[in-house]
Design a protein around this nucleic acid. Structure first.
Length: 313
DNA sequence: ATAATTTGACCGCA
DNA sequence: TGCGGTCAAATTAT
């Protein structure tokens, strides 16, 4: 994701922040994630049965929570060590059985920088990926899919990711593990420069409001990421803030430091996400996310995903 | 025709 | 020896 490339997950670049500042950042991120989880629960309770609004609120808050989680993972593993597989804000929604959260076997390459997260939208990270493999992992219910950056060849980008569904139900959750940082320097999504989007992506944007939703998600994440970057970079605005700002103060700082951030309004500019009576179906979601972020089809090869004959087991 | 995905095979590590 | 990660030919989609 963008945080990965902008903050340099692989280490370095964090030396400018003091321990106290790092602790403050971690504390605030943790609080933000907890508050997001509470807000999500509350929003879903209020919006229950309201189809699109419910689905959109769930989507946005899930992504905000994911952004917090990614940032926390980054902060908690400066040396690239894998963070503990605890996702408090997501645990309730994901309810992943323990065996699915077993650490990846890549122990032999612990030096590889990586970030892991749980998300309902494993495609939604701003980069273009090409699937190069899929494997049934023992003692798990779902196959693991292997992706590498689409620019792996032409630009030698080493970024890869693994995606594995970790819970089923109405809104499946996916464990996504990123390896290496992007060196292709090609984020597919630049909200402030829509012309940079791949033609295929623009071509298939036929869902009214979908782009708006996605841009909001990206912008929110960018606010988080840039704020974190400001803090780590020791920008003046942060130092002017109280030593131990509460969450509200932090939010205020965000509002001051950034452009008038778009208020996330789940009720306005609603994308036409099809909620087919049983919640936000993963394939519907994938269609939207895939079309928005990655253009043409991308499959996990999950049962029922159609095309290509399914799994060999 | 070209690009992307699927999937069985192969390889290296624990 | 088993498992997980990657390769590459075959297949499918655009």
């Amino acid at each position: 994701m963008q945080a990965q490339s902008r903050l340099g997950v692989s280490g370095g670049g964090m030396s400018s922040a003091s321990d106290a500042e790092l602790e403050a950042v971690i504390r605030e991120l943790t609080r933000g994630r907890q508050l997001t989880a509470r807000l999500r629960a509350e929003a879903l309770r209020v919006l229950r049965g309201q189809g699109q609004a419910e689905a959109t609120a769930a989507l946005i808050l899930q992504e905000v929570s994911r952004a917090f989680t990614v940032c926390l993972n980054i902060m908690g593993s400066p040396a690239g060590a894998p963070p503990p597989p605890e996702m408090p804000g997501l645990a309730a929604a994901a309810a992943a059985p323990p065996f699915l959260l077993a650490p990846p076997r890549r122990n032999r390459e612990d030096s590889i920088p990586r970030v892991q997260t749980v998300t309902p939208s494993p495609h939604y990270d701003g980069y273009q990926w090409r699937k190069y493999g899929q494997k049934r992992i023992t003692k798990t219910h779902y196959p693991r899919c292997y992706y590498r950056c689409s620019f792996h060849r032409e630009r030698g980008c080493r970024a890869t990711k693994q995606v594995q569904q970790c819970s089923g139900g109405d809104q499946p959750q996916y464990l996504v593990i990123y390896f290496y940082d992007h060196t292709c320097d090609t984020a597919a999504w630049e909200p402030e420069a829509p012309a940079n989007r791949p033609a295929a992506t623009v071509r298939r944007l036929d869902l009214p409001g979908a782009a708006l939703l996605d841009e909001r998600g990206v912008q929110e994440e960018q606010v988080l990421v840039s704020t974190l970057a400001c803090v780590l970079g020791g920008q003046q605005q942060f130092h002017q803030a109280p030593p131990a700002p509460d969450a509200a103060a932090t939010s205020a700082a965000i509002a001051v430091n950034e452009d008038p951030a778009p208020v996330v309004d789940a009720a306005a500019g609603m994308p036409r996400l099809d909620v087919d009576g049983v919640g936000l179906d993963v394939m519907d979601y994938e269609d939207v996310a895939g079309e928005l972020c990655f253009g043409d089809g991308d499959s996990y090869g999950l049962p029922g995903s159609g095309g290509g004959g399914g799994l060999p087991f």
